[in-house]
Amino acid sequence: MGDYFQTIVDLDATERDAQELGARVLDWLIADGIVAAERTDCVLGGDGYGHAPGPHFTKAVDDPDPVDLWTNGFHVQTGRTVFDSGQGDAGAATCPLCRTEIRLVDEVWEPIESAWGPFEGRFQDWAEDGGEGIVHCPSCARPSGIDRWSWEDDYYACGHLGFTFWGWAELTSDFTREIGRRLGGHRTVLLAGKL
């Protein structure tokens, strides 16, 4: 078993505008009946409170069957956060400067310790210490912030704003694009995972 989730991460939101942007999207979701206005005990993480699916939640998903789980809510996360897909790990990372893909696991999905070396402690530096989490690319040797790297299967994303849907059917591409539009055209990434 486990709890499945999908998180849409705003890659462009700043620390300063994350709260306002999160409230804007939440207001729209409530107004359209996609989520309920009242906060209830329906999500994992944070304070455990989120917004249950509203009467028109099917506007957001591929499968119209009702969500019949305790963890079926929507949660807005603001603040400097490293979002991830839960179980497992990223298979590869791609340098934002030279576009070289760095394999992080071998053919049987065992971590390649030497490949992970440049990334060690960088997420913590970015998220908890407020630094840039500088990674020196093993291929081009140039430095860049961990928040600029991309990850196979969108396993990680660094950002100040994320929208998590717990136990919902797969979100439609139209819905995820609409969230990006409501964020002012910001770049977004969808992480899907399980705890």
Rank of each mutant, 00 (worst) to 15 (best):
H75M: 10
E110W: 01
L44P: 00
L171S: 10
V82K: 10
E120P: 00
A90W: 05
E120N: 07
V108E: 12
S85R: 07
W116D: 03
Y155D: 06
G79K: 10
A18Q: 05
P143R: 07
D17Y: 01
I8M: 04
E107H: 13
C95D: 05
V82Q: 12
D62A: 15
L26H: 03
E120R: 14
E15K: 09
L26R: 11
E15F: 09
P55L: 12
P118G: 07
W166D: 15
L44Y: 14
R39L: 04
F5S: 07
R142T: 05
A93P: 03
E38I: 08
D106N: 13
R103Y: 00
W151K: 02
V135N: 08
I102P: 01
L26A: 03
F83A: 02
H186A: 02
M1V: 08
D17V: 04
I179W: 01
R103W: 01
D174Q: 12
C42P: 10
I134P: 11
F175Y: 10
A60F: 06
Q77T: 12
T78A: 05
R99V: 04
H51A: 02
N72Y: 00
Y49P: 00
G193R: 06
G162A: 02
G88L: 06
A192Q: 13
Y155T: 11
L26T: 12
R39K: 08
D17G: 03
V108T: 14
V9N: 11
H75E: 10
I30R: 06
A36H: 08
S173C: 01
V76F: 03
D153W: 02
H160D: 00
D154Y: 00
L44C: 11
E107P: 12
T14A: 06
C158R: 02
G180Q: 03
A60T: 03
F57Q: 11
S85I: 01
A52S: 15
G79H: 09
D17E: 06
W116L: 14
R187T: 14
R177S: 15
A52P: 13
D27A: 15
D41I: 00
I8D: 05
L161W: 14
D12L: 03
V189P: 07
T94Q: 15
T71S: 13
E101K: 12
G167S: 13
H186S: 04
A192H: 07
K194V: 14
E38R: 15
A141P: 00
I34R: 10
R187C: 03
I112Y: 01
S173V: 10
D106T: 08
Q19A: 13
T78Y: 10
R39P: 01
F123L: 14
T58Q: 15
G167N: 09
L171K: 12
A60I: 04
R80N: 11
Q124R: 13
A31Y: 12
L97I: 11
D153P: 00
D27C: 05
V105Y: 04
T164D: 03
I134L: 14
D84K: 08
A141F: 08
F74C: 05
A141R: 15
K194I: 14
P96G: 02
D68A: 11
R182Y: 02
